[in-house]
Design a protein around this nucleic acid. Structure first.
Lengths: 335, 335
DNA sequence: CCTGCTTTCTACAACGTTGTAAGCAACGTT
DNA sequence: AACGTTGCTTACAACGTTGTAGAAAGCAGG
């Protein structure tokens, strides 16, 4: 029930290579020969064996996207954009979940050296430049934080600038006790560090004190962590009048905790997030956030990968920046 | 920089096959030979060429998961479970987005006949038995609605029963004007039809009238559709005291619309959903929902696929059912 | 009729791997 | 000493495809 070029060739009375030529659209095939071959292909429902083709050609047409967790909405949305962008290049995307640990990420990064995939788009949390150094220089594009000037291409957004901007927005609303949720001291926390820097920058620029007590760590960036951190801030008695959560899921958790505490958003506490996930457009209240251009990020990553695949594999690593904008919604807008 | 068995063999002074034997853990290799080979492998950083291995073995070790949209949280959560379950079988999961259209789904279903993947776990929306009939009987497990007794293995949950149960729960709370959001008349709407049936069953069993005006269609099952449908119900003047949304994202949209209309949940209107996505545990209010056992669904699907791959490919199709339970939360609980 | 060119088609080898079958030692048993 | 047995290793072919080189056929121009 599963046929090969050879079967088609026999049926059409031509050589294997001629069938291959037809399949690949080679021009110098007589119209009647082509018709006979195509008929045989249809009759046998022939489909090429991709493993064999790839073995022969050295390319698989598959790229991998590795993200920490698929059910974090930001990554799911990003994945959709990457799949869409890759389709324009005729690529299939294999999506990989790393879990975010350094060891697992190292496995993924080195797994690229097996021959199943042509290239990798990788959104690491914990990976270090050291981990990358040992690898063959296979085509890889990193998303998010630059891994200490590692050897790979990068697509980044200006985390510090975006964090500064959204914090300044809160200050502009007259808020003075602005908490931050999501700080991390682990090596995984590169994004957290940059966003914290932007937050501190904005405070300093406005002449406000950076108060350690207003900065709540979050081991992960899930809703539950945001809720726990917010509860912690409320019970510690620091009474913030605004909160900058380092991503939207944290912010949704924080909204929940504020609701449970009987505080109104934005009247009592303004809340902002980061990522612009779909949920934030429908939460109660809707969520003011930094909206990175995910479609752009995905497209840039795919294009970088394409250039790396077709071009000089030893060319110096490039870094591209994707834009973002602030989405102002109910969680900061006094009616 | 990329090496083959041959390179390792030359370096270790053995035959290609011996290296292959070491790589595959064949037992009859002298310890010192094995050591020499392993050393050579490490020095050259050798990694097997999977395309070649798969060409030879006829298996790729890759299965595909095809879902309509990755950024629908239900599918993202499901994907995570499938990746986890597949890992136990040493499989890599290639995640595919169909978009949910019939034509695209047909392409995915027939794409399985190319040789890149060993099997497919498929959550179709629009596919018909007819579409499946034309295909070679390749290993495929369908999730969700049975495609009219099609030829493939299935993992289902009892949609009718679950819908009946959660509707009865609303009735038990004393609600009498229970709306439904999410009905669909398109062929894509198999789940919608079953859930509607369960809803109608429950009403009938309680002696309540089925009121067409209380049933709101939704072209897709996104938050925006839920919000729009809810607004429609409110402006039409039917004044429901409860709403059964056919999935959680619809329900989150409905919550939003109720909030904008100044109605309290659950005091004025009780709201329930279906799927138990993470968002519903943190929304305001938290969402009562039908919680299908996603981990179980994923595991059953992977196991069915494994049996189909190792067993008789022509064995009759099987249908397994995964359990669900009701998660009662704030959106139906009068304090 | 030969030459050179184009079009159309084909044989062969190669991509990197593993299953098969067989070879060669080393060993214990008659 | 001859034998079978076991452990270890290898040569070869095959998986299905495509690039290369070149053959065969047709055509134009001399």
């Amino acid at each position: 029930m599963r046929h090969r070029l050879k079967d088609v060739a026999e049926r059409a009375g031509v050589s294997v290579k001629t069938v291959s030529n037809v399949v690949n659209g080679y021009v110098h095939v007589r119209p009647d020969t082509r018709a006979r071959v195509e008929e045989a292909i249809a009759e046998l429902n022939y489909r090429p064996n991709l493993s064999a083709r790839h073995l022969r050609k050295g390319r698989t047409g598959v790229i991998a996207l590795a993200v920490p967790e698929l059910d974090i909405p930001y990554f799911a949305e990003l994945a959709r954009h990457v799949v869409t962008a890759a389709a324009d290049f005729g690529w299939t995307v294999l999506i990989d979940q790393t879990g975010g640990g350094r060891e697992q990420e190292r496995v993924v990064a080195s797994g690229i050296t097996d021959h199943l995939i042509d290239g990798l788009i990788f959104s690491p949390l914990a990976l270090t430049a050291e981990d990358l150094a040992g690898l063959d220089n296979r085509p890889m594009v990193l998303l998010g934080e630059r891994v200490d000037h590692g050897p790979a291409d990068h697509v980044v957004i200006d985390n510090v600038g975006a964090a500064r901007e959204i914090t300044s927005h809160l200050i502009g609303l007259g808020r003075r006790r602005i908490a931050a949720i999501g700080s991390q001291r682990t090596p995984e926390g590169a994004s957290a560090r940059l966003r914290l820097t932007g937050y501190a920058d904005a405070l300093r620029a406005a002449g406000l004190d950076y108060d350690e007590a207003l900065v709540a760590p979050a081991p992960a960036w899930h809703r539950a962590d945001g809720a726990a951190a917010m509860r912690g801030l409320l019970t510690s008695g620091v009474r913030p009048d605004a909160v900058f959560c380092f991503n939207d899921t944290l912010a949704l958790g924080a909204l929940r905790a504020l609701h449970e505490a009987g505080l109104r958003v934005p009247e009592d506490v303004a809340v902002v997030g980061f990522d612009d996930i779909e949920d934030g457009r429908f939460s109660i209240p809707t969520l003011t956030t930094v909206a990175p251009d995910k479609a752009r990020i995905a497209r840039l990553a795919v294009e970088l990968l394409a250039e790396r695949l077709d071009g000089d594999p030893t060319a110096p690593a490039r870094e591209l920046s994707a834009p973002y904008r602030l989405e102002l919604r109910e969680s900061t807008q006094t009616p």
